[in-house]
């Protein structure tokens, strides 16, 4: 069979060319459709993402929390004990978007306050996206002593608290490393997502060795499996890992 000559600019390719191109076109469209079905069906979401869903106004419900405000290592409101949380319940605080909260620390450290906002929840982790400023309802009191749980070596992933708490998906994993870094640059508190629950908790607050916020070096360890070592202490129902990032290892 003599091959047919095709000119790129021609309006009417020959019969053989038309037939072959019809075949190629069919294979292309069917192949893309099939690959799309296969690839898309393997996508898994690690958790409900509040901000990605179209029904944001419906799911967001404003709450008012009353408790003790602390700033180390990150802004946290400690709610008094109730039936569900006999030790009290710590809630991380953050602002809108990729911003933390900017409260007057000198005036509010240790004070009992009322804060409005909406809650992000994933597992045992709660984060309040604060709306407005906290209202002081009682003067600071002596802080409760944290309970030391000893020295631990734990494996898991450091994430921004907001997406780990269900703000945006995936919330964990390298794909959103830059996104999580931006949150941390904006002072959103990080959390440690442990691969094994520890004292019933999968999410831990992380601090430096002196119990304060971690510096920029944390960004080199974000969103991937890492092993961290340090003292773990319990504040209310929250676990806080005090770790020196110099000893952190990427796995």
């Amino acid at each position: 069979m003599k091959d047919e000559f095709f000119i790129g600019w021609s309006n009417t390719p020959g019969r053989q060319t038309r037939a072959f191109m019809a075949l190629v076109s069919t294979v292309l469209i069917a192949g893309l459709a099939l690959l799309s079905a296969i690839l898309s069906s393997t996508i898994r979401d690690p958790g409900h993402s509040l901000f990605g869903s179209s029904g944001l106004p419906q799911v967001v419900q404003d709450v008012t929390l009353a408790g003790t405000l602390t700033f180390d290592p990150y802004p946290i409101i400690m709610l008094p004990p109730d039936a569900m949380h006999p030790r009290g319940h710590g809630v991380l605080l953050t602002g809108e978007g990729k911003h933390g909260v900017a409260f007057d620390r000198a005036a509010l450290e240790g004070a009992r306050v009322e804060i409005k906002g909406f809650l992000l929840k994933r597992g045992t982790l709660d984060m309040l996206v604060v709306n407005g400023s906290p209202r002081k309802i009682a003067e600071p009191e002596a802080p409760g002593r944290p309970q030391s749980l000893g020295r631990w070596r734990i494996v898991g992933e450091i994430c921004d608290g907001k997406c780990a708490a269900g703000g945006m998906s995936p919330g964990t994993g390298l794909a959103h490393k830059a996104c999580a870094n931006l949150c941390l640059i904006g002072d959103v508190p990080p959390v440690f997502v442990s691969s094994q629950p520890l004292e019933g908790q999968q999410f831990l607050v992380i601090a430096d060795g002196r119990g304060r916020a971690l510096d920029h070096r944390i960004r080199d360890f974000l969103a991937m499996r890492v092993a961290l070592e340090g003292q773990i202490e319990r504040r209310g129902d929250m676990l806080v890992l005090r770790t020196d990032l110099a000893h952190a290892r990427r796995l």
Partner: peptide, 22 residues
Amino acid sequence: TIFFRFGALPGPDGLSPDAPTL
């Protein structure tokens, strides 16, 4: 079209990815 249609179906855990991720 197929990616958005199939990708938005809930997985075994009942969760489905959001539109920006898709």
